[in-house]
Nucleic acid binder design. Structure first.
Length: 911
DNA sequence: GCAAGGTC
């Protein structure tokens, strides 16, 4: 291992992902007397203390300073000029430059790191050992190396805060893994670009267009889209649709019950149910005529009910929702409180198995004093009780945190709310259950025959198979049958007689072997205990049977009942968490956030039964995208991203390659979605009234991008429909850039397509599908036309010549193109005359150079000084000569037109 | 004002 710089003792800066880990690791490493003791001093951030001690790494004496960050130190954002919603077209967000920076609220931590780094030769990174942790590690590296370029950078790899593990990690330092960090960079950038583009798009498109009556301030409603929140909404909507589309169907079934002193057995018709009433009635009448039931089969099967796996975050959330009706958000809030106060372990973990090195018994020992479950903890620790069992894992390990378990005893704290009590109890009981034996029972299935129809009943007979002394106490209550039971047990053990012999005798006593169910009060066996039945075969071997008469019996009730098929239930919070977990939507630490977001954004509601339904808004959005044929509301996009991230993290794909491919696909999807925005409108219109605002604000709504503006070279040009029905393609850079292309007045419909013009090569120009009004165009022209505004489309040019454009003086309608210069009237009149304008500016063809841009001013100067000047094309830079029009409408007018193939620059000049 | 991921 390389040494540090300078003479004397090496000083190392250690950084953990959170304060608790910095403290725990420092405590472990400073236990040795040679550490000189553990000293603590304040950092600039009040949460992130600095621990100091000495430690020997590979026999080198190191002076350790140990501090922490609080999760990510940096944020990813668009550069400032893209931050405002109207600053650009949302589609630009797929290429807009992004920057990573330390936000204001983290600057204290940054300063601490910088100050400490300057005094150190080594940097040891103790971030969590997952991909996010590795990414945070590189954020720390960036900040620290800016302060001290000579740092020797090391990574400590550990999976639990256990002495041996930590000492091993520090003695076997490795280098940080750039690939892991890259994978997270990919996720961050994709999430930001997709989220921001779609959110801005659908918010600006729909907020003004509809009366969103669910919000008090509907102008500030945000219709967000996110790669996690939308699939979460998708789960809710999909189940809602299944539920709603269910058509109840009536059916009939024959039901039979039989009461005896031992209980009631409910027999189900083995045909299930019939949808045909006549058939059901005929069969029922046959049964009624001869209702004697014959037992045809009795089957016993031993069943083990295993305790749950150790507790992960998602399980904690699901169980708190099921047992206490707590929302996942509230659960995490309370869990965080309990963790902060030291009562439970770290609550954000995917791990559901304990490391072999965990001292499981000590955790139980601490709970022995508890008034409620203390005695169970004592039994667990008693080897004679045989209750202990090493917990079985669920196969998940995040390599950073153990399963959630109690870390400190409490019989309840004064300041705890009911939810604190409940959650602590759940964590403790769950832990005690995990280290317990499974419950053992038997399920009995009895089949009977009535008039040739088969019925069956299943029930539980809890049996004593443990042969343990503790069972003795149960047997006292069995009175005189006790001796018989021992006899039968003896027979069972030594003569291998069937278990059934025991059951048929013991069942009336119900010997109990609940094991973990004794402490895990949240779970039960369910079902009921049914009476004992024997079939003919068993009677022959069971000489001791007291149930002989039950070969035949008369049912207590035998009824023909009607019912209706039930729809699948709406999703509960536990169901929703399961769906998300299965599809890989979100992480253990964020799933509850995504669920809450659905509620906050008015996309879904939770009813009194804690089940989720979409709101009309949530349903409309999903419906809109679904109608477009997109599965943006399905989990596949996230799954694809996840698999790409995995590929980056193991080096099979490169960061840049994945970013480029994914963003390209998403951009195409975005552009396509925008072309099909009518589907969103239609879906919204099903549930919401159109707003009056939409007409007035239509001009401000972002349209579909046609091409990059050739004039300002910065913004996009988008297709718009003016309130008077005319179409234009204008620059989003307005008012700084006033570039505009007016389309023929005879256009009735225009839609930007995803087809890129192959003739116009100065950058992508999306073709527009036009529909012309039949009566306004000559008969030899087609009403449908796929056209291009890039300058290559002769048909469009001819129709503009013939029909004129939509550029008219309409001062009654406010908005772009009117009244923005003192000369606008002149301009409009002039342009109205010159119906053949192909491309001009907002300020008019009369004043083509009257724009704020310097280079245009130079053109004017050139044009005045020279009789026949050549100007550089504003689109591609090629020299453009002054030419004279000879069309019918504009004969004699001067114009500049770019000679470059595919370039659309064309402007009339009036001297 | 937008995402999702850390975390206080």
């Amino acid at each position: 291992m390389a040494g540090g710089g300078g003479g004397g003792r090496i000083r190392a800066l250690n950084v953990a992902e959170k304060p608790s880990v910095a403290k725990a690791v420092s405590q472990i490493l400073s236990k040795n007397p040679s550490s000189g003791g553990l000293r603590v001093r304040e950092g600039r951030s009040r949460y992130n203390k600095i621990f100091e001690f000495n430690y020997a790494i590979q026999n080198q004496h190191i002076q350790m300073s140990f501090t922490s960050v609080t999760g990510h130190l940096m944020e990813l954002e668009f550069e400032d000029r893209y931050r405002k919603w109207h600053s650009c077209d949302p589609v630009d967000l797929y290429q807009a430059p992004v920057k990573k920076f330390v936000p204001q609220d983290k600057s204290d931590i940054q300063k601490t790191l910088e100050e400490e780094a300057r005094m150190c030769q080594w940097l040891i990174l103790w971030l969590d050992c997952d991909r996010e942790g590795e990414n945070i590690a590189f954020e720390v590296v960036e900040v620290c190396t800016r302060a001290n370029r000579n740092l020797n950078i090391w990574r400590a790899r550990f999976s639990a805060l256990i002495d041996r593990e930590i000492h091993y990690a520090v003695q076997h330092l490795i280098r940080p893994n750039q690939l892991f960090a890259d994978a997270v960079d990919v996720r961050q950038e994709i999430d930001l670009r997709i989220g921001a583009s779609f959110t801005r798009f659908q918010t600006m498109l729909l907020r003004d267009a509809f009366v969103l009556d669910f919000a008090s301030d509907d102008q500030n409603v945000i219709l967000s889209y996110g790669p996690c929140q939308f699939p979460t909404l998708g789960f809710v909507v999909e189940r809602f649709w299944e539920n709603q589309s269910h058509e109840p169907e009536e059916f009939w079934s024959i039901n039979c019950t039989h009461n005896s002193a031992e209980g009631t057995a409910t027999f189900n018709w083995m045909r299930g149910h019939l949808f045909d009433y006549t058939s059901a009635t005929i069969i029922y009448e046959m049964c009624i005529e001869d209702p004697t039931a014959t037992v045809t089969s009795v089957r016993q099967q031993e069943k083990l009910k295993y305790p749950p796996h150790p507790l992960s975050t998602i399980e904690l959330e699901k169980r708190a929702s099921r047992y206490f009706r707590m929302s996942s958000e509230q659960t995490m809030k309370v869990a965080e409180d309990l963790y902060q106060a030291g009562f439970i372990s770290y609550p954000r973990t995917e791990t559901d198995s304990f490391s072999e090195r965990t001292d499981l018994h000590t955790i139980v020992q601490e709970q022995q004093e508890h008034p409620t479950w203390g005695s169970y903890a004592q039994r667990l620790l008693d080897p004679e009780a045989g209750l202990w069992r090493n917990p079985s894992g669920g196969g998940h390990d995040d390599k950073a945190h153990p399963p959630i378990h109690p870390t400190k005893f409490s019989a309840g704290e004064a300041r705890w709310s009911q939810d604190h009590h409940r959650l602590y109890e759940l964590v403790v009981r769950h832990y005690l259950a995990c280290v317990s034996q499974p419950a053992i029972s038997a399920e009995t299935t009895v089949e009977i025959d009535i008039a040739g129809e088969q019925f069956s009943a299943s029930g539980r007979v809890i049996i004593a198979v443990s042969y343990l002394i503790c069972r003795f106490f149960n047997m006292i209550f069995a009175g005189c049958i006790l001796c018989l039971i021992y006899l039968v047990r003896w027979l069972h053990m030594h003569m291998h007689l069937t278990l059934y012999v025991i059951i048929s005798l013991g069942s009336s006593i119900v010997l109990d072997h609940r094991n973990y169910l004794d402490v895990y009060r949240f779970e039960t066996w369910g079902g009921s205990v049914i009476p004992t039945y024997n079939d003919g075969q068993q009677v022959l071997v069971n000489h001791l049977s007291i149930s002989l008469l039950r070969i035949l019996f008369t049912p207590t009730t035998l009824t023909l009942d009607s019912g209706v098929t039930r729809p699948p239930p709406l999703l509960s919070e536990a169901d929703l968490l399961s769906c998300m977990d299965k599809a890989g939507i979100g992480t253990d630490a964020t799933m509850h956030d995504h669920i809450k977001k659905l509620l906050d954004r008015f996309y879904a509601t939770k009813d009194s039964n804690m089940r989720f339904s979409p709101t009309t808004l949530g349903e409309a959005l999903v419906m809109g995208y679904d109608d477009m044929g997109y599965e943006l509301w399905k989990p596949y996009l996230r799954a694809m991203m996840e698999s790409d991230m995995k590929a980056v993290s193991i080096g099979t794909k490169r960061k840049g390659e994945v970013l480029e491919t994914c963003l390209q696909q998403m951009k195409a999807c975005f552009v396509d979605a925008r072309v099909n925005k009518a589907k969103l409108f239609e879906a919204m219109a099903v549930f919401f009234e159109r707003s009056n605002r939409s007409d007035a604000s239509g001009q401000h709504a972002i349209g579909d991008v046609v091409r990059k503006c050739g004039l300002c070279q910065e913004s996009d040009m988008v297709l718009r429909k003016k309130p008077d029905g005319n179409f234009m393609v204008g620059c989003l850079g307005y008012p700084q850039c006033r570039n505009v292309v007016w389309l023929p007045g005879s256009v009735s419909e225009a839609t930007v397509t995803t087809t890129i013009c192959s003739s116009c090569t100065s950058g992508p120009v999306y073709m527009i599908q036009f529909k012309f009004r039949r009566l306004e165009i000559p008969p030899n022209y087609n009403v449908d036309h796929l056209g291009c505004i890039g300058g290559c489309d002769d048909i469009l040019k001819q129709l503009i010549e013939i029909c004129g454009t939509g550029f008219r003086n309409n001062s009654s309608v406010p908005g772009r193109g009117q009244g923005h210069t003192s000369s606008s009237n002149t301009a409009q009149q002039s342009n109205s005359r010159s119906t053949g304008a192909w491309q001009t500016t907002h300020s008019s063809s009369s004043y083509p150079f009257e724009t704020p841009r310097g280079h245009n001013a130079r053109y004017q100067e050139a044009s005045v000084q020279n009789g026949e000047p050549s100007i550089p094309c504003t689109s591609c830079g090629a020299p453009c000569n002054l030419r004279t029009a000879n069309t019918q409408a504009n004969r004699g007018r001067k114009f500049y037109s770019c000679p470059a193939q595919g370039c659309n620059f064309f402007v009339y000049v009036t001297f």
